[in-house]
Design a protein around this nucleic acid. Structure first.
Lengths: 348, 348
DNA sequence: TACGATTACAGTACAGTACAGGATACAAAC
DNA sequence: GTTTGTATCCTGTACTGTACTGTAATCGTA
């Protein structure tokens, strides 16, 4: 084959030969001499042509294969799979579902990380096996792995399935791993960790609003229990802890039904936007005063909630993405708790 | 025999030939070109027609036989036995950016398509070359390609870059292609097309609100010109056409500045949510009445906009995803315009 | 200096792909 | 019955990647 005339192996160099092979193939891809799906010489023919050990060529090819630049088909050969994303920083961003808030984190991250990086987004739908597949398939292919771990159960210690998840995550090189949002997995040592402390966050935020909350007789947390995508149960725990600590009457609801009976003195904390919409509509319908007769606190702030005057307890999603980007760019490591605030408005 | 014209064997491909035969036949069954009890070519005639070794064809047939998709009768031939194949359908969903609305389309699509499919999401950031690479890399890897084509320029005819995009899209098998949202590319024949007719949609929707719009003296369209992710310019054209047709005074703004001077009788149409928030805040600040002194129409509806009583002109994102899913499941093909509505509320 | 890790080489073995050819058993048409 | 075409099974050959083995030279560091 004459395809590889332009590969130069320097016997004198201090750079290992297998690295030279890797680099020259990457170079040939970047200058367009090698294109996607193109076959590259077999290990045998390459080693014969350049008087190299088969082992050396194999090593180079296996590195390129790990980085997903080439793939191998047993009995056929090696083929180019990627022609882009070289010399850039490649980031894999894995989230459980696509919500408004995850989207805002992702977008603020992509904006902050800048043009010298490429970020792929993958959604694993809270599915353990899908997550494991994704991770296995992309092992070593990226420079950073940003993972938001949210799975069907939070009680991670007793489920073997999630054990697999934890071991899979732990197999990622520590300096490539960024854990976001959830810190309750037994991840040994992540490079970067930006988390919400769900239990204490809601507890502390509600405490900030205690004076106003005390005006109400009973607290309702609308927590979607049977949702396909579960919310952290620690939100529940933090809410309960707060209510018990300050001797407040409380109840957990699964959703705001259409025929819900509202009473003066009720205070609702909603998580899903649909529940908030339903609730406010019913308050208006029954001519209660929002923030007077009935209080509403919404989880996760948005600009439109501000316009509506809805009191919120919320983490700062934009900052979450920005912090992750900044820490990667600055190569700082460590654990950072993302700020969580009580945002006082008219609905309380 | 000419029965098997539709089998494609690529000698260069990294997929083994026998696998290509298997996939080809399964694909032809799933699209209905091969029916139950139908005879398929003998090993000999198949191998001669496609210049393959008999062994290769035999291997493919024996795999299909093992999977009970075909049966063999000694001395006669091979026959299809099963047309219901419950293999998972893989779908590639390509969008230009991750906005609230794209997200809603995606989520409603994934919900509607059901558990027997797997949908991967890829974001190409309006970047032509990134788009081309994604497509090239995933060529033949999916059963359906759902593409929302939005690129840096809409004037697609004069830019060679986007010519490449069009040819790349046209290379996708017609029965695997779903074009969404944008119908102004010269795509020859897509399997499914669900589009917004941006220019006529805004024109018609505004016409529905003409009586109320006439109360205002001047119309402002807040159209982010220099955004990283451009909005279709046909929105502009439709707006202009409407204003000219009905002799309304109008102006195009790039954004709502903090020091904007509001006048009684102004009517604003905002596209970005941030502009809507800014605008409403300023209206409140300057103690104008929303819907009285100053009118507001927002592009793209959301539940919270309903709560706020913001009049909207909007397409139905949920339906867009659902329609795509339904058409794929039902194997119907054709062009469908997604509904676009004028939603009358208090802000006008 | 000594040790361990990396690099590079050589050899062996195994498994998958694709081709070519041959032998046999069955079915249908002549 | 013969001929033709069919599936089925067998052999062999020449590639391919994958996975080990052992050996020697080199380099950095303790």
């Amino acid at each position: 084959m004459d395809i590889f005339k332009y590969v130069e192996i320097d016997g004198q160099s201090r750079i290992p030969k297998y690295r030279q092979i890797v680099d020259s193939i990457i170079h040939n891809i970047s200058v367009g001499k090698l294109n996607i799906d193109q076959k590259i010489p077999s290990i045998n023919s390459f080693s014969e042509e350049y008087l190299l050990s088969r082992d050396t060529v194999e090593k180079a090819y296996s590195i390129l294969k790990e980085r997903q630049i080439i793939t191998s088909i047993r009995g056929k050969g090696y083929y180019i799979t990627r022609t882009k994303l070289l010399s850039k920083v490649n980031i894999l961003f894995m989230i459980n579902k696509l919500s408004t808030y995850k989207m805002r984190i992702y977008n603020s991250f992509v904006n902050s990380i800048g043009g010298n990086s490429h970020t792929d987004l993958h959604i694993y739908h809270c599915d353990n096996s899908l997550f494991l597949n994704l991770l296995e398939k992309n092992r070593n292919a990226y420079d950073y792995y940003i993972i938001m771990p949210h799975f069907k159960t939070e009680d991670l210690k007793h489920i073997s399935y999630t054990d697999e998840v934890v071991t899979a995550i732990n197999k990622i090189a520590k300096d490539k791993l960024v854990i976001m949002d959830n810190n309750k997995l037994a991840i040994e040592k992540a490079f970067i960790e930006i988390y919400q402390d769900f239990e204490n966050d809601i507890y502390n935020a509600l405490q900030h609003g205690l004076q106003k909350i005390k005006k109400y007789e009973k607290l309702f947390l609308v927590y979607p229990e049977n949702s396909v995508y579960p919310y952290p149960r620690r939100i529940l725990h933090g809410f309960r802890k707060f209510c018990l600590e300050f001797s407040l009457d409380f109840e957990i609801l699964e959703e705001i039904y259409d025929d819900i009976i509202l009473k003066k003195g009720d205070l609702f904390i909603t998580i899903e936007e649909s529940d908030l919409v339903n609730l406010v509509n019913q308050i208006r319908e029954k001519e209660f005063s929002l923030g007077g007769d009935i209080g509403v606190i919404s989880y996760n702030d948005t600009p439109l909630k501000e316009l509506l005057g809805i009191t919120c307890i919320s983490t700062d999603f934009k900052m979450m993405g920005e912090t992750a980007a900044r820490m990667i760019l600055d190569k700082t490591k460590g654990k950072v708790k993302n700020p969580f605030n009580f945002i006082d408005r008219e609905s309380l």
